[in-house]
Nucleic acid binder design. Structure first.
Lengths: 169, 169
DNA sequence: GTTGTTGCAAATTGTTTGCACTGGT
DNA sequence: ACCAGTGCAAACAATTTGCAACAAC
């Protein structure tokens, strides 16, 4: 597994960042960090807590929240607000933060190139003096797999349509 | 006041819509509807409840939620998810739903023309098979008034900068 | 008189906080 | 040893739900 492989470097980096602020690298923080490093996806605080618990059941949910906050403050982690109240977290790997779109049916988060909203950001800045933080909330919509009844294709009335649907809202 | 003036028509329309589904026009629904009709802004469920209570203190918060849900289902009301877990509701007045951007500092919601994201929606559809519902979440950013320390303008060090800041997140 | 709706209270969900104690440095 | 950080439980905010009483039709 390449999972923890890439994490160590990050732990060192973050330790330095923390030290520079008179703060400390601790078990829970290390755990959260390596969970995030091991997963390229977008994890909710609870996802993180779950995976942290697998390694170290002693870590409390509140500590996960605090660690995520701290890591966000350090600029190591980005959080994204998705449609219905679920905040997701992920390591900032590249340089510019990317954008996100979430399917409102299955909840899947799609990563998008950061420049996608550059034009829009320009318009907002020019016309409204609004500085867009494009990656901070996920765009909402329906992904290909969940697209309900595509325009005109009356062939199947498959009942398994009401399948796993996470949170319809 | 033009407040309740425009509402009556809507109440009739909605009553018809409800009847068509075997449902009923009730006090709470009427109240929620006229509160929304009287306010051009974006109200949270609690805002609505507050204003409804002013007219009729008997209406329960849960009923406000249920009424808002129902009105949304009828296509009369649109709800927008904003950054930190606050859903806002407003009457759908025109034809196409407009877009929203919210200042993450003061919470103000900015209305935007619906076509602003048309190009982006096209790209998402083409490249990712993702059907964007642009108005469903508010874009996040910082509005003109809350823009913290604009690039290079070291003139004032006004202390009233730390003013009303609703929810920094 | 049905049956959809409400009010209420309690349950959920996601997150934060006060505090005594533990553990980095 | 000092103080940041933790675990815990309890507070919180926003929303949902089960249910008996109620009211629109």
């Amino acid at each position: 597994m390449t999972g923890t492989g890439g994490a160590e470097a990050t732990v060192d980096t973050v330790t330095a960042l923390l030290r520079a602020r008179g703060e400390r690298m601790t078990g829970p923080r290390r755990a959260v960090l390596s969970v995030l490093a091991a997963d390229p996806g977008h994890l909710s605080a609870d996802d993180v807590h779950l995976r942290v618990s697998a390694r170290d059941p002693g870590v409390h949910r509140a500590s996960v929240y605090r660690a995520l906050d701290m890591l966000t403050e350090l600029g190591v982690v980005q959080h994204v607000h998705t449609g219905r109240g679920v905040t997701t977290y992920h390591l900032i790997r590249g340089e510019r933060p990317h954008l996100h779109a979430q399917c409102r049916v299955c909840g899947t988060v799609l990563d998008l190139p950061e420049d996608l909203l550059d034009t829009v950001a320009g318009v907002l800045a020019r016309d409204h003096g609004f500085l867009l933080d494009a990656g901070h909330v996920a765009l909402s919509g329906v992904c290909r797999c969940c697209d309900p009844v595509p325009p005109a294709a009356p062939a199947t009335d498959t009942p398994e349509f009401t399948a796993i649907e996470s949170q319809e809202e």
